[in-house]
Design a protein around this nucleic acid. Structure first.
Lengths: 221, 221
DNA sequence: ATCTTCCACGATCAGAATCCGCATCGGGCC
DNA sequence: GGCCCGATGCGGATTCTGATCGTGGAAGAT
């Protein structure tokens, strides 16, 4: 299983790398946000070990951007032990778990296994539903022979919905997904995007569940 | 959301209880494994906060027994900070997360929210009783081949009842579930929703227990 | 025991109040 | 220019409220 380690402290990074290799993982190492972004864009990692403090930015921002783009790869945060506030923010930002430094190598791999196991339950490569096919890598879709294009936000909403077709996705969760943890926007942005999506997909494709959220309709009329 | 706190240290337990209540949870408190077992058998908790060291046994054993019995309620372990081995063991025993003492109250609730959210994703278990099948992820039901739809409140009441079929659910508890601990309604709102449910499910499906609450009927006439 | 009375609690209903989503627009920003 | 955020007013679904009516069952009488 490929694990991406994002850590600039060389000693720590090497230790992690060796330790995880011994545990049967296949770690790859990057040392800054920019490289991490690039690696993650390729995809194919089973999980990410992410340091919060990086030379070219905060790991939290990287994480938030990742989630906003719809990537749900499991993330294990590394944080200094006393940064309680960071830790809370991390979980809300979409991290699957975190670990305070200094940490035990056995614990790192136990937690990695745990979050990977959790993530497997929700994975799916093909996004397809009710005649709509979505290509996540191109942000495009296809329906009844016509190619559909979506803006970033539109696509994020649609993707969140199609990952669990038929299942209600709470509006909170959609906002969370679009904007990250920090301060759910004080507006009807989600509704607007749903509106635009309906214009492209046809009314009836996305159902409203009043007071709760949205979901994809079970069958097309 | 009802949270079961299993903790024998009175100071800690009270602190947790008050803190969680302020965060919008509805905590209930037990101080030993035996009581915890009993409470858990009733079901209806959104999560469990579990201390490892209890007067009548280890929380780990309780957890293991719980999982062995098929119960997947999210569990947050409380452990002394340096017991790394316990922590790893806890994750392997089926805990969803753990927290070292001393801990920050905000962190407890952040983690609770996180594990509850996760658990909801995997739920999708159909609730079934007496010919009614309920799908919580879709807020729909099906009975005698007919699809039933419910509003949010209706569904909340019905779900509370069907989670412990045949068991009486006090009206207070229903209100609590609908409106949170604060701001109880000053009217017969619950009764109204029960009324609407009966209209959809047929009279006799929900029984009234005068002076106490409601429950689902054992068998259909 | 049986019957009657009584009353607190629940059922029912309709109108009011509230909440929520939809459509639309303008301005800021990339 | 395209995209996204935030605001607004409207319309409708949902929920609450309060009044009234119905009823179970206990208390007391016979």
């Amino acid at each position: 299983m490929r694990i991406l380690i994002v850590e600039d402290d060389e000693t720590l990074a090497d230790g992690l790398s060796v330790g995880l290799r011994l545990q049967g993982f296949t770690p790859e190492l990057v040392t800054c946000c920019a490289d991490a972004r690039e690696a993650l864009a390729q995809g194919g990692f089973s999980a990410v070990v992410l340091d919060l403090m990086l030379p070219d930015g905060s790991g939290l921002d990287l994480l938030a951007a990742l989630r906003a783009g719809g990537d749900r790869v499991p993330v294990l945060l590394l944080t200094a032990l006393d940064q309680v506030r960071d830790r809370i923010g991390g979980l809300d930002a979409g991290a699957d778990d975190y670990l305070g430094k200094p940490f035990d190598l056995g614990e790192v791999s136990a937690r990695l296994r745990a979050i990977i196991r959790r993530a497997e339950g929700r994975a799916s490569a093909l996004l397809e539903w009710n005649g709509l096919r979505l290509d996540p890598s191109r942000m495009r879709g296809e329906m009844a022979g016509r190619e559909l294009r979506f803006s970033r936000r539109e696509f994020a909403v649609l993707r969140a919905l199609i990952e669990t077709p038929g299942v209600i996705v709470e509006k909170d969760r959609l906002e969370e997904r679009l904007y990250g943890w920090q301060e759910g926007v004080e507006s009807n942005a989600v509704e607007v995007h749903v509106h635009k999506l309906r214009a492209k997909l046809g009314a009836g494709f996305i159902e409203t569940v009043r007071g709760v959220g949205y979901r994809l309709a079970e069958a097309r009329p």
